[in-house]
Deep mutational scan, measured.
Amino acid sequence: AEKTGIVNVSSSLNVREGASTSSKVIGSLSGNTKVTIVGEEGAFYKIEYKGSHSYVAKEYIKDIKDE
């Protein structure tokens, strides 16, 4: 089941290729951006990003809701 969340950062949140802080950064999301969460892996959520799937750190996503 998909969930949505809100990016909870003051500046921007790195979007990564994989579920690791050493993964390549492929983009960023600004605070209060709504994201669609399709899964989770460790400390990361797998999200829909620009037509494919990428990862963001869970600690920076708030207001998780089931869609």
Results as ranks from 00 to 15, higher is better:
1 A>L: 14
1 A>T: 13
1 A>F: 14
1 A>R: 13
2 E>K: 15
2 E>W: 15
2 E>P: 15
2 E>A: 15
2 E>Y: 15
2 E>R: 15
2 E>S: 15
3 K>R: 14
3 K>H: 08
3 K>P: 04
4 T>C: 13
4 T>E: 07
4 T>Q: 09
4 T>M: 10
5 G>W: 07
5 G>E: 03
5 G>M: 06
5 G>I: 05
5 G>D: 02
6 I>F: 09
6 I>A: 04
6 I>K: 06
7 V>R: 02
7 V>P: 03
7 V>Q: 02
7 V>G: 03
8 N>L: 09
8 N>D: 10
8 N>I: 13
8 N>G: 08
8 N>W: 12
8 N>Q: 10
9 V>F: 07
9 V>S: 12
10 S>R: 12
10 S>N: 10
11 S>W: 09
11 S>Q: 10
11 S>A: 11
11 S>N: 11
11 S>F: 10
11 S>L: 10
12 S>A: 11
12 S>V: 12
12 S>P: 09
12 S>K: 12
12 S>C: 15
13 L>M: 06
13 L>W: 03
13 L>E: 03
13 L>C: 15
13 L>G: 04
13 L>I: 15
13 L>F: 04
13 L>A: 14
14 N>P: 15
14 N>I: 14
14 N>H: 12
15 V>K: 01
15 V>H: 02
16 R>T: 09
16 R>S: 06
16 R>A: 03
16 R>Q: 10
17 E>A: 12
17 E>K: 07
17 E>L: 08
18 G>M: 10
18 G>A: 13
18 G>C: 13
18 G>N: 09
18 G>R: 12
18 G>F: 14
18 G>I: 07
19 A>Q: 03
19 A>V: 05
19 A>I: 05
19 A>F: 05
19 A>R: 03
20 S>Y: 08
20 S>I: 04
20 S>L: 06
20 S>G: 05
20 S>W: 06
21 T>V: 12
21 T>L: 15
21 T>F: 15
22 S>L: 11
23 S>G: 05
23 S>Q: 03
23 S>A: 13
25 V>G: 02
25 V>D: 02
25 V>L: 06
25 V>P: 03
26 I>C: 07
26 I>Y: 02
27 G>S: 02
27 G>I: 03
27 G>A: 05
27 G>V: 02
28 S>C: 14
28 S>V: 14
28 S>F: 13
29 L>Y: 02
29 L>C: 04
29 L>R: 01
29 L>Q: 01
29 L>N: 00
29 L>I: 10
29 L>V: 08
30 S>I: 12
30 S>P: 15
30 S>R: 14
31 G>M: 12
31 G>T: 13
31 G>Y: 13
32 N>M: 10
32 N>E: 08
33 T>M: 10
33 T>G: 04
33 T>V: 09
34 K>N: 05
34 K>W: 09
34 K>F: 09
34 K>Y: 10
35 V>Q: 00
35 V>A: 01
36 T>R: 14
36 T>I: 14
36 T>S: 08
36 T>F: 13
36 T>H: 11
37 I>K: 00
37 I>M: 02
38 V>C: 08
38 V>D: 01
38 V>Y: 07
39 G>E: 04
39 G>P: 00
39 G>K: 03
40 E>V: 07
40 E>W: 06
40 E>K: 04
40 E>S: 07
40 E>T: 07
41 E>P: 01
41 E>C: 13
41 E>H: 07
42 G>A: 05
42 G>P: 02
42 G>M: 04
42 G>T: 03
42 G>S: 04
42 G>I: 02
42 G>E: 05
43 A>Y: 07
43 A>G: 11
44 F>E: 00
44 F>M: 04
44 F>H: 03
44 F>L: 01
45 Y>L: 06
45 Y>Q: 01
45 Y>F: 09
45 Y>G: 00
45 Y>H: 02
45 Y>E: 00
46 K>G: 02
46 K>R: 10
46 K>N: 02
46 K>H: 04
46 K>F: 05
46 K>W: 05
46 K>S: 04
47 I>Y: 00
47 I>N: 00
47 I>W: 00
48 E>I: 15
48 E>W: 15
48 E>Y: 12
49 Y>M: 02
49 Y>E: 01
49 Y>I: 03
49 Y>W: 10
49 Y>G: 00
50 K>Q: 12
50 K>M: 14
50 K>W: 07
50 K>T: 04
51 G>E: 06
51 G>R: 04
51 G>I: 02
51 G>T: 05
52 S>Y: 10
53 H>I: 14
53 H>S: 05
53 H>C: 08
54 S>R: 11
54 S>H: 09
54 S>Y: 15
54 S>W: 09
54 S>L: 07
55 Y>I: 00
55 Y>Q: 00
55 Y>N: 00
55 Y>D: 00
56 V>I: 08
56 V>F: 01
56 V>Q: 00
56 V>K: 00
57 A>H: 07
57 A>E: 15
57 A>P: 14
57 A>D: 08
58 K>F: 03
58 K>Q: 05
59 E>M: 12
59 E>G: 07
59 E>Q: 11
59 E>Y: 09
59 E>I: 13
60 Y>A: 08
60 Y>I: 03
60 Y>L: 06
60 Y>S: 08
61 I>F: 05
61 I>H: 01
61 I>R: 01
61 I>A: 01
61 I>L: 06
61 I>Q: 01
62 K>I: 15
63 D>Y: 12
63 D>F: 15
63 D>A: 11
64 I>E: 07
64 I>H: 07
65 K>Y: 11
65 K>F: 10
65 K>T: 14
65 K>W: 10
66 D>Q: 13
66 D>S: 12
66 D>V: 14
66 D>I: 14
66 D>K: 09
66 D>W: 15
67 E>Q: 13
67 E>I: 14
